[in-house]
């Protein structure tokens, strides 16, 4: 019997891997089960320390250069087999682009249910996941009866909170035989140093109020000052000012940062779907009646061309 956490990596362990470990530790404690982990990637060497304090008994590490990038042909059988070997009752993964594909595929292979993109999970005699439905307009408790019960957690929705405790034992596993059907031909990764939108602790988003692509540097400047990732409303994406990978909302990315700053965004319901679970929402808009002020924590009514640069300067000042 075991709770099993899937440690996602992109070269390094991702922050969401530690968030998942944190949630898994609490679930394992409540369920009275040990917690184990699977790592699949190039190498965990030198990163073991990051895994201290999550109560992980053992990490089953599948390390190989050919495993550095996700492939469902390679990853899915590994997780399926470890889950069976450990008699896993609960499996916790991350609701990232690749994590969702992995979890869905493993759930199918095990013939079990999965609460995908949950914003929390707890043990109450069984696994109960908190999951937004209908573009976040409703929050559901999903009780999973299948064994194992699976859940993938939205990045940033659970805090990675290590406690005192040792680093886990690492058990290196031989690379299993896999027959790769899909071939990874090419990877294009984000430029180093840029904060990834869905995992960023702070997101600064711009909307139609920015006026045009020539003014977008105002958003980028504020984001840089705050150490934030840049997001956008659909109006801006549709106008072609920025790439659609930046879109926040129902048909874009879903983000849950500590601080979400909406600049020149009206707060349409479809935009809310992507940022509603942010911890603190700050709005900058020149229209005092803009909808965004109804869902923000702190609002500044004003011209973003004035407010954003001033805010960036103030942040730089206090951070210096």
């Amino acid at each position: 019997m075991s709770v099993l956490v899937l440690l996602e990596q992109r070269g390094e362990l991702k922050p969401c891997a530690l968030e998942a470990a944190s949630a898994a530790r609490d679930i394992a404690a409540a369920a009275g089960m040990p917690l184990n982990a699977v790592y699949i990637g190039q190498s965990l060497e030198g990163q073991e320390g990051k895994l201290a304090g999550y109560g992980i008994a053992k990490v089953y590490a599948y390390e190989h250069a050919s495993l550095s990038h996700y492939s469902n042909d390679a990853y899915v059988p590994i997780v399926r087999d470890v889950a069976r070997e450990l008699d896993a009752k609960v499996i916790i993964g991350s609701a990232t682009a690749l994590g969702k594909e992995l979890c869905a595929s493993v759930a199918a292979r095990l013939g079990v249910e999965l609460a995908q993109d949950a914003i929390g999970a707890a043990w109450a005699g069984g696994l109960v996941a908190k999951k937004p439905l209908y573009a976040g307009k409703v929050l559901a408790d999903v009780t999973i009866q299948s064994v194992p019960a699976m859940v993938s957690l939205r990045p940033n929705s659970v805090q990675a909170a290590p406690q005192d405790g040792p680093a886990p034992e690492i058990e290196k596993r031989a690379m299993p035989e896999v027959s790769l059907r899909s071939v990874l031909k090419e990877t294009a990764e984000a430029t180093a140093g840029k904060v990834e939108l869905t995992e960023a602790k702070i997101v600064v988003s711009g909307g139609r109020g920015v006026g045009g692509p020539e003014n977008w540097h105002i958003i980028e400047n504020l984001a840089e000052a705050m150490g934030a990732a840049v997001g956008a409303s659909r109006a801006v994406v549709d106008a072609g000012w920025v790439h659609h990978a930046l879109q926040v909302g129902q048909t874009g990315k879903v983000v849950s940062p500590d601080i979400y700053v909406a600049c020149g965004i009206s707060g349409a319901i479809q935009h809310q779907a992507g940022m509603r679970t942010s911890k603190i929402i700050v709005a900058i808009n020149k229209d005092p009646n803009a909808n965004i002020f109804k869902l923000c924590d702190y609002g500044i009514v004003g011209d973003l061309f004035e407010v954003c640069p001033a805010l960036a300067e103030e942040v730089r000042k206090v951070r210096a």
Binding site: H69, A97, E189
Partner: peptide, 9 residues
């Protein structure tokens, strides 16, 4: 994928 893409055959 987050901040990038894979080309897969």
């Amino acid at each position: 994928i987050e901040g990038g893409k894979y080309r897969i055959e």
